[in-house]
Design a protein around this nucleic acid. Structure first.
Lengths: 183, 183
DNA sequence: TACTTTCTAAACGCTAACGTTTAATAAAAT
DNA sequence: ATTTTATTAAACGTTAGCGTTTAGAAAGTA
């Protein structure tokens, strides 16, 4: 096989990070090649076009990043511990949380990606909904509260981007969450 | 004075729209000049640099767009009507609602703009908090609920971008809101 | 050894966008 | 009527980035 220089996964991981930082406009082939210490022809060997490249990034994101959280929390013992863990993880500084933000903007021109995002959103909400159901909420309430929580989380990200999360602020946030659910 | 061709405000309004659509990368002087049927030298006459231009857009946004909603709702008679109106307005398709999202990303490199955004966010939350207080909530509760509502709204935008808002979906959303406040 | 596959270097041509300059012109002020 | 001020057109040089091409090296296979 090849001389080991820049493999496909190197490109994709770098692309993922850059996309999370600046969106599509962050994906600049020549700059990336410099970071990877290789020539851009490597890029065009691995990927036919930029669009195809981004598609692969999205696949990577779905397969690793999005499923990551659920597997991590799902390993907890009982339901309310799972929920607690989930909240702990999601309401802390997540390095590439802007990825989905930019992806949504990018997806405007791309039906396929739009659908993937919708599915991811729906899965996340459904996961929390199920936890809540197991904790005793009615099906209806669980659904509403899961949606509330997810929207709240998104709002939380928007309002705390690149900010330090002070103890005090997090206490406020916890109060807000407690308004939605008792856990 | 001048021959009337492309005035400062034309540039700013166009810039505002483009920024709301694509962020900084949407601000492309030569493209804008074509839309305005003028030469790009006009731009460089009105604005020293792109950055200065964006600063002016931000000022425009603060002075017109952000204050717009509050004045519109504040004209309602009583407090709960104001709140109702506010929710009606904000939870409907707003043409340039992505402006603040992109601005937040842009503001990472710009302390001044960051502070402006923080102030806008705080003012909005405080406005709702005051309404809720007048409606009988305790100061603490009003604060929490106002924050909840704002985060919920942001999440709502994120999840419904470029989607049709079906009757059914809006009923769900209203239920979520009702979980936070009764109004 | 010879051949094939996988990958990279270097160079090329092209377009988009930047920001500047210089000259021209229309309206306002004198 | 002339000068000043505000504004634009046209053209220029520069850089960034795109995507392609051509030639060839390293590793694996026959």
């Amino acid at each position: 096989m090849p001389k080991i220089v820049a493999e496909k996964k190197d490109w994709i991981q770098l692309g993922y990070r850059l996309f999370a930082e600046k969106g599509v406009s962050g994906i600049v082939v020549e700059k990336m090649s410099k970071k990877l210490n290789c020539n851009k022809s490597s890029f065009y060997w691995h990927f036919k076009t930029k669009k195809e490249f981004i598609n692969e990034i999205v696949i990577y994101w779905v397969n690793t990043k999005t499923k990551n959280i659920i597997t991590r929390t799902d390993s907890e013992e009982n339901t309310s511990q799972k929920l607690r863990k989930l909240i702990d993880i999601t309401y802390s500084k997540m390095p590439y949380s802007d990825f989905i933000f930019y992806l949504k903007r990018y997806a405007v021109k791309d039906e396929k990606i739009s659908k993937i995002i919708d599915k991811v959103d729906a899965e996340r909400i459904a996961y929390v909904g199920n936890l809540l159901k197991k904790m005793g909420y009615s099906s209806k309430d669980a659904k509403i509260k899961a949606s509330l929580l997810y929207k709240h989380l998104i709002g939380f990200y928007e309002l705390t981007r690149y900010k330090e999360l002070s103890e005090d602020y997090m206490i406020e946030v916890k109060k807000e969450i407690n308004q939605i659910i008792s856990y």
